[in-house]
């Protein structure tokens, strides 16, 4: 019995090992947007807001965030966004992506993003750390 069981084990190892390699390889080289793309999206958002192109900035927000920002007035995203006092940023300090969520730490802001198709959309911006508690954000659709 031991020999038969051992043979089955070996066949299963081979399959499992092959699958593990495949999973590992694909997870690292997948077609999903990564932390670099998240940093680009966060920077673009800030650039758009600073240059006054709030329509374009609204296009970078996640639908839930737009909804929160408009507060029941559909189509008012650009107007509402102009009223938000976002601090100007100039550089990316850190960008981390885990699964379908990302956090980009800029010199004067922290931005949270969510994956939508092949792109990153901003869920929260103008965020201030409160230690262990969730960040306090000026724009927040979480």
């Amino acid at each position: 019995m031991r020999t038969k069981v051992a043979m089955t084990f070996r066949a299963l190892f081979a399959l499992a090992a092959a699958a593990a390699v495949a999973v590992g390889a694909t997870a690292c080289s997948g077609s999903n947007p990564g932390s670099a793309e998240a940093a680009v999206a966060a920077t673009m958002f800030h650039d758009d807001v600073r240059s006054g192109d709030v329509e374009a900035a609204c296009g970078l927000l996640a639908p839930g965030t737009v909804e929160e920002l408009e507060e029941g007035e559909p189509g008012s995203c650009a107007i509402k966004l102009r009223e938000v006092d976002l601090r100007a940023t100039s550089s990316v300090l850190e960008s981390e992506a885990y699964g379908s969520d990302a956090q980009v730490v800029l010199d004067e802001d922290t931005v949270f993003l969510v994956q939508s198709g092949q792109n990153w959309k901003i869920t929260a911006a103008g965020c201030t750390s409160r230690g262990e508690r969730p960040y306090d954000c000026l724009i927040d659709g979480s």
Partner: peptide, 11 residues
């Protein structure tokens, strides 16, 4: 970490 980020917390 993803769950932390969803809740607007550090990963």
């Amino acid at each position: 970490a993803q769950e932390q980020l969803e809740n607007l917390q550090d990963p």
